[in-house]
Design a binder for these strands. Sequence first.
DNA 1: CTGAATGCAAATACTTTGCACAGTC
DNA 2: GACTGTGCAAAGTATTTGCATTCAG
Lengths: 154, 154
Amino acid sequence: MGKDQPAPPPNAAQRVEEMTAALRAAGHRITPQRLAILRVLASSPDHPSVERIYEQVAADFPTTSLATVYKTLTMLKGLNQVLELGFAHWSSRYDGLKPHPHAHAICLGCGAIVDPDIGPLDGLARRMAEKSGYSITRHQLDFFGLCPDCQKKV
Amino acid sequence: MGKDQPAPPPNAAQRVEEMTAALRAAGHRITPQRLAILRVLASSPDHPSVERIYEQVAADFPTTSLATVYKTLTMLKGLNQVLELGFAHWSSRYDGLKPHPHAHAICLGCGAIVDPDIGPLDGLARRMAEKSGYSITRHQLDFFGLCPDCQKKV
DNA sequence: CTGAATGCAAATACTTTGCACAGTC
DNA sequence: GACTGTGCAAAGTATTTGCATTCAG
């Protein structure tokens, strides 16, 4: 049992299935380590960092290495089974529950990340494509501020 | 004379003034190195990297160091005189012309960055604040894809 | 003159890579 | 049994920091 872990989402088991299937379909093997990583991803609505995923995996699987976590995440990213939230000054965070681009709010105080549905960005993406001439394949929208808890602490 | 540098924007001189004033107002000194950095920022619509800024500054000012460029940019960031576009797997890029958050399109082929006006994100920011309870102070919206030139090359 | 800024080099943080061994299919 | 995946350690990249020297105000 973790510290203040949010409740695992209802579709966790299903997501593990999907990710497993995607790996197999791409000709990759399902090792115990990978399965453990998938389970962590599928049950973490809090967008864990590599380090955090590693800690949780290492709990049941002490011999796991950070490198394996990195490699697995890179693989899942390539299969669009996990969304990487990359930042300049902090380590990346990962979303294995909704592996398609969507807006996030990041707390500058404690690092908490949430992703309520605020509607699609298709309109903006289309306008950007038109005005820039770029062919857009991916996007990242991050709002930075303070979460309710950290607002109180100031 | 640079390589394929875009034309410097008309308000370059004015922006140098503004940035200089902001530095002075904050009690910082205007050194030749800093002035050179400001000039590069004010005349670069292409969102240069630190390395690129450094190269240009070093052209007229061979003794400049990367550390100074980093320190100056951090300072300007704090004064909201430059916008940092931070990414996970590439070095940050800087916008000294429009130092307030706005959408960008990044070419995954050549790294070109453009920022046509696609309208404000206030609505989304408000919705995110309401739904998340976060107090939002800053945002970053990036579209990734291929620029017109790189589309041809594929 | 005096304290802030520079420039060098060393340190840091995160991520990737090479390779021998282990374990899945 | 073949060959991918793992885990360790070393390498790589981007950025920050410490400190003696220099210089702007």
